[in-house]
Design a binder for these strands. Structure first.
Length: 278
DNA sequence: AACCAGGTCTCGA
DNA sequence: TCGAGACCTGGT
């Protein structure tokens, strides 16, 4: 077990892991349990430190929690009004997480038109069916090849109309048609335009992938809740308007603002999903 | 028992 | 560009 000297105002695990940006983490017995780089990790806040158990390197942890982001200056830059000042104060320690682009893409393709418990369940099913069992009982996130190898079974996983989209995307990744590192290097707009060429990836999902896994922090994913929040706070009328408003108004770190607003609209810590295996 | 869910795609005005 | 409908299921 190792110890991270990450103060509370630097990292709040409940806000960061419970705000809906990640789907495979859950809190149990006061510990946050999840996976980083397909290895199980447990994190427990203890005063001004975090206790870590699991085989993860310091670099992976720092990268996952985006510890190179200067939270103070980012928060300052998005405190555009009283409302945002309140949110920054209330949710101090909320950080964006850097996810693996492949897993993030699949997760948000699955997130279409489903509620959080169901999204978590679909992802967990995918991992149980196509991933590898780890010591400790959890499963790795499957590789694209794992999925392509048994495309028929994917349709029996309760994913609904999302199954075809995931299979098609997996196939394209296998074929080398998706270059995540290139997507990371290119500008935000081109990244989103490129992602949207795939079936099942529209504005919202592309923004999520760009923001949560490809370091495009100006991405401002707009779903129903964000649209409604922006309507009541800023008088924004449509999805398109909300998306553009978000980026223009909040600027380079609009994604952080989005996550604060999303958290303020509900969600909260989720329980461990139960997958019945046969 | 309905209703609705971190949307996307297609089509017609 | 914009609105309407279809789309698979399963939470609540």
């Amino acid at each position: 077990m190792s110890v991270l000297h990450w103060a509370r105002e630097e990292v709040d695990l409940d806000y960061t892991l419970g705000c809906g940006q990640v789907f495979r983490w859950y809190k149990e017995d006061g510990k946050w349990k999840g996976l980083i780089d397909n290895r199980e990790v447990h994190l427990k806040r203890s005063g001004e430190t975090i206790e870590v158990s699991g085989e993860v390197g310091m670099d992976d942890l720092r990268s996952c929690f985006r510890m190179d982001d200067d939270l103070g200056s980012i928060y300052d830059s998005i405190k555009k009004d009283e409302r945002m000042r309140e949110l920054v104060e209330k949710y101090e320690g909320l950080r964006l997480v850097r996810q693996d682009p492949w897993g993030c893409s699949v997760s948000f393709i699955l997130a279409t038109c489903a509620n959080i418990p169901r999204i978590r369940r679909m992802i967990e099913t995918l991992c149980v069916e196509f991933g590898d069992l780890l010591p400790g009982g959890r499963y790795t996130f499957p590789s694209p090849q794992d999925i392509v190898d048994d495309g028929k079974r994917l349709k029996e996983c309760g994913l609904g109309f999302r199954a075809d989209r995931v299979l098609e995307f997996s196939q394209r990744v296998c074929d080398g048609e998706v270059d995540f590192e290139l997507l990371r290097e290119m500008g935000y707009r081109e990244c989103v335009r490129t992602l949207k060429r795939h079936n099942g990836i529209g504005d919202k999902v592309a923004d999520c992938i760009a923001l949560f896994s490809l370091d495009h922090l100006e991405a401002f994913p707009v779903d129903v809740r964000i649209k409604n929040a922006l309507h009541s706070e800023y008088g924004v009328e449509s999805y398109r308007e909300a998306r553009e408003f978000g980026r223009d108004y909040f600027g380079r770190y609009a994604g952080y603002a989005q996550q604060l607003i999303y958290l303020s609209q509900g969600s909260g810590i989720q329980r461990k999903p139960v997958i019945d295996q046969d």
